[in-house]
């Protein structure tokens, strides 16, 4: 049991050292990121192919959830989710029926190997 506590303590110390390194890296990357943002270039769209399917699965079903009354706009999210799932379900159905991948035709729907 105490071994476990020591381990946790060690992990925390390592994490704190990493946080210091993070801080330095953050400063350096901040500039670059801000520049990208100012140029209005979306990394998601420019640098790689992203599947809308994966995006929806992650943003609308993953991530930290704030519980309780302090959250707002939950109804809106449900609507977005339902709307996009419906769109995606139809894409999936077409893919299955036609036997081709529509996901390879548009930039926002394209899922490819890394």
């Amino acid at each position: 049991m105490s071994d476990e506590r020591e381990q946790v303590q060690r992990r925390r110390e390592q994490a704190s050292r990493r946080r210091d390194r993070d801080r330095e890296a953050w400063r350096k990357r901040n500039e670059a990121a801000r520049e990208r943002q100012e140029r209005g270039v979306s990394r998601a769209l420019r640098d790689r192919d992203v599947s809308l399917l994966d995006l929806v699965d992650r943003l609308l079903a993953g991530g930290v959830v704030i519980h309780g009354e302090i959250t707002l706009a939950v109804a809106d999210v449900d609507l977005v989710y339902v709307g996009l799932r419906a769109l995606i379900a139809s894409v999936e159905t077409i893919e299955r029926d036609v036997g081709v991948s529509l996901s390879a035709t548009g930039p926002s729907l394209k899922a490819s190997a890394l």
Partner: peptide, 17 residues
């Protein structure tokens, strides 16, 4: 962008308080 700057836990889309 945040992920490229630091370790983060992303929140569920649409979380406002």
């Amino acid at each position: 962008e945040l992920m490229s700057l630091a370790t983060i836990l992303p929140l569920r889309f649409g979380s406002s308080v």
